[in-house]
Write a protein that binds this DNA or RNA. Structure first.
Lengths: 236, 236
DNA sequence: TAGATTGTTAATCGATTAACAATC
DNA sequence: TAGATTGTTAATCGATTAACAATC
């Protein structure tokens, strides 16, 4: 299962590097679209918004795909990163919870463009089963296992309200899904071997608020903060 | 500007800790809703999905809000964390780009529940200016500066297509916004002192795909991966 | 007091960065 | 060859974790 064909240098890529590879891939796609055939680590780092030392260190985990004194061939490096991430293959995805956010996700073109194919939209509410969203029928949640097996779904997206999310995750795991992207604002408990990534709008805003508070944002609010213990803290 | 009232231990909280404080706050809200008055670091850590050593270390940056041998008072700790993050005050937010995702964000109740108030929805497309979303009028993008000043907006959310995002960010910065939450799949360039946080669905999926590929997900796809160089890589 | 649990220390681990030898 | 740029080393920095003294 963990065996790879020989000559592969790519073992044990640090998590922080893995998280940046898709950023590099997107930057390379941008360079390619602009007609750039070759780029230096400095060029690519700028496009990706990191420094070039970090970029070169990251790429070194994949192998040696550059040429000293020259740089990187954009198409070749793109392909190597895409292969490393796994987006040269096709990934069937199922989305559960077709409310406002589920609609947005189903219509999101970024899914399709990187090898992710939405094969089913599921919702527990029968009133939604009439709908067709982004050309895909909304089906009952109870069809999950059948769909997972039929399409070989490995990745599930949860966009239900928080109270439903754990139950949805349990069913996904039971059906064989081992990678979950969770948009519901709740902590999911899953067995070892199942990956969960979480996108949480409210948490992102709170992190921004923390830094904003420390910056002293608008003059009026800063004044309110500095005015004292501020047990209520509502700015004017 | 960076002055605080005395007795505040809260200086230089590590970034990793800051990112977890909102998670603790949510877990505490859950405990409170369940009628729990006191909890141990072990209880709270479980609810938040972290280990208790990390939780205690994190909380130690805020001060000493627990009682040895007893644990933490849920309401008291909630308040202290909320104050530290800054969500005891009210944060006016503007959302730019009212497509599918913008609609979902405008309707997202998690915004309101944590002190974030959507004061305006902006879109460059005049055909959207008739709309009322979540009880808020959609207004022209050119109204941005006026709205920012009128409401003291410190946080801007970008949910436009990628090509528009940098221009939106530039205008936000010019209007005085110093914290941006970016949903557009593009790297934003902003002056020092402006915080950008990025939520990128496609990148999250690619990170999951990387790990899924290494796990050997469905038997058929795993077979395709192991079959050899797989220059095309499309699984059966 | 005895049991429980915090807050802190110190060791470990992982990520970042600058510098530069290797080499095109 | 001379100039440019990679890939790697080593130093630094920050985050995690286990263990336990402090103390309720």
């Amino acid at each position: 299962m963990t065996e790879r064909t020989s000559s592969e240098a790519s073992r044990d890529i640090p998590e922080a590097t893995v998280a940046r590879l898709p950023v590099y891939l997107r930057a390379l796609t941008g360079l390619s679209d602009a007609g750039t055939a070759t780029c230096s680590s400095e060029d690519l780092a700028t496009a990706a918004g990191v420094n070039s030392a970090k970029l070169r260190k990251d790429l070194s985990y994949l192998g040696s795909y550059g040429t000293r004194g020259v740089g990187y061939d954009v198409e070749y490096l793109s392909y190597q990163i895409a292969r490393e991430i796994g987006v040269t293959q096709d990934w069937p995805v199922v989305i559960v919870g077709i409310g406002n956010l589920g609609h947005a996700l189903a219509n999101f073109s970024g899914f399709r463009s990187r090898g992710f194919r939405v094969v089913a939209l599921l919702d527990a509410d029968p009133r939604r089963h009439e709908e067709v969203v982004a050309g895909v029928d909304v089906r009952p949640f109870s069809d999950l296992e059948e769909i997972v097996h039929e399409h070989g779904v490995a990745i599930g997206v949860i966009s239900t309200p928080a109270p439903a999310a754990q139950d949805v995750a349990d069913h996904m795991v039971a059906a064989g899904i081992r990678s979950i992207l969770n948009f519901a604002p709740t902590v999911l408990t899953v067995p070892a071997g199942v990956d969960v990534r979480k996108v949480d709008l409210s948490i992102e805003l709170q992190i921004l608020a923390y830094h904003e508070q420390r910056k002293g944002h608008a003059a009026s609010a800063a004044a309110a903060v500095e005015r004292g213990p501020a047990l209520e803290g509502r700015p004017v």
